[in-house]
Design a protein around this nucleic acid. Structure first.
Lengths: 251, 251
DNA sequence: CCCTGTGAAAGTGTTCACAGCT
DNA sequence: AGCTGTGAACACTTTCACAGGG
């Protein structure tokens, strides 16, 4: 009560739910595969199976984009590929920098699926002077002294951090100061960023720990009856990094 | 109506919400750091800041584990570390196999945070005969012909797939047949698994596409007023792979 | 008075089931 | 008849706000 303000009336008329956005790349991948096999149309049921979701969810997701299907028929594959690509902003290409060219950074630089879909590795950056000048994945590694210049010269707005955790925050700060507004963080650290900057994290050890949690449950369920009530682990067989939306520090 | 069945009355009495499970590793990491600095107790406010969440969420999360805090004081760091570790099943150690020792597989094998927290790389497996026998991260790579034997000899229940997408499903099938019940999939494919097997995926290009979506919005918002109502992008600055829970195929 | 633990409210996401177009 | 698009029900998650123990 008191102040009243419900913290934003949410004028969502065109706002696509975050959960839907996270699934669009999945649909796009499935559609691209169909497109390559020259399949002209696909039903929500078929596409959902290919993307590993259920068809009601898929139809609801698409309904946020508009009415792109034809009742009694399905969706036009090419048309949907285009609409989703556009919605995701993949019709333009995004120059990306990778900072921290260790094992993981090098692996990402070499990763094919990177360049394929609208993303271009504009530069590789590392703090080690011995690294600078070397080629990784056909790209010359540059020294981090030039980070700011590299970002602005290439108009980079997406940065990938694959540094050791100890320096991730300062690299992040420099990227943001130089104009980067989206960060994909592979370092096991919580990054503090100012408002308006998006951070997504990919964390191997968190994923493993979540698996271990469920694994432990399974072991306990084997022949049970005592303490912990079984059930619980209802929808096994689902996949995808889910839940988890830690808020960011006040900056 | 008709059949009535509400699809499971949900006997949840000890079931920890999935969203909470996904955050426990985050808390554990923050607590471990405090522990190393010999900090004896911490308030929900402080710990929440360190983990990048808000304190109400953290308290609610901990309430699912039990009442481990002291009112007026906070939480005992060591005690919480232990409780969360136990809840996540990290008091035992989990042998893990990595299948597909390319750039990414090798990078993961070398990744330190792996072994640190209850996980041990029990074997590296690759289909390339030229790879077999070589050492990666101090571990001899074994040929995939022996996959089943390796799994059962080592009692492996968690498998990491870093193969090319084309063979990911068949590798997955073999892992599952050999007894693996948790899979961390880095290949950009939707894996079909039988009931009772957990799959989590880590997908670089999906993460980038989600960032691109928001990035595009920001660009559009710069000087707006016309079509799309601004607002929408409320809580910028959040981080973490969220949303996304694709169901699995019927297998 | 401080800080945890938690009901209750609000917000977000998923599923159902069917109206309505082709 | 078949399949999309969607309101409405349900389920899950987050946030609020405060009771109550230390």
């Amino acid at each position: 009560m008191a102040t009243g303000r419900t913290h934003r009336p949410a004028t969502r008329s065109r706002g696509i739910p975050e959960a839907t956005v996270a699934r669009l790349p999945l649909y796009l991948r499935a559609l691209t595969a169909l497109s390559e096999r020259s399949v002209p149309t696909v039903s929500s049921e078929e596409l959902a199976a290919a993307a590993g979701v259920n068809s009601a969810k898929l139809r609801k997701d698409f309904s946020y984009l508009g009415s792109y299907g034809t009742r009694g028929v399905g969706y036009d594959v090419e048309y949907l590929v285009y609409q989703i690509s556009r919605e995701l902003g993949l019709t333009q290409d995004w120059p990306v920098v990778i900072v921290g060219i260790g094992n993981l950074g090098a692996a990402l630089a070499n990763y094919g699926g990177f360049a394929s879909r609208g993303f271009r590795v504009a530069a590789l950056i590392d703090a080690d002077p011995a690294m600078a000048g070397r080629q990784v994945a056909g790209i010359v590694v540059q020294h981090s002294d030039d980070l700011e210049k590299i970002i602005s010269d290439n108009g980079v707005s997406i940065g990938v951090i694959t540094t050791p955790p100890g320096v991730a925050q300062q690299v992040c700060d420099r990227l943001v100061a130089a104009g980067v507004t989206s960060i994909l963080n592979f370092a096991p650290t919580v990054l503090a960023v100012p408002d308006g900057v998006d951070v997504r994290k990919v964390d191997l050890s968190i994923e493993l720990q979540i698996l271990a949690f469920h694994e432990q449950r399974k072991a306990g369920e084997e022949h049970e009856g005592a303490v912990a009530p079984v059930a619980a682990h209802r929808d096994a067989g689902e996949q995808g990094p889910d839940g988890d939306v830690p808020a960011v520090m006040p900056a």
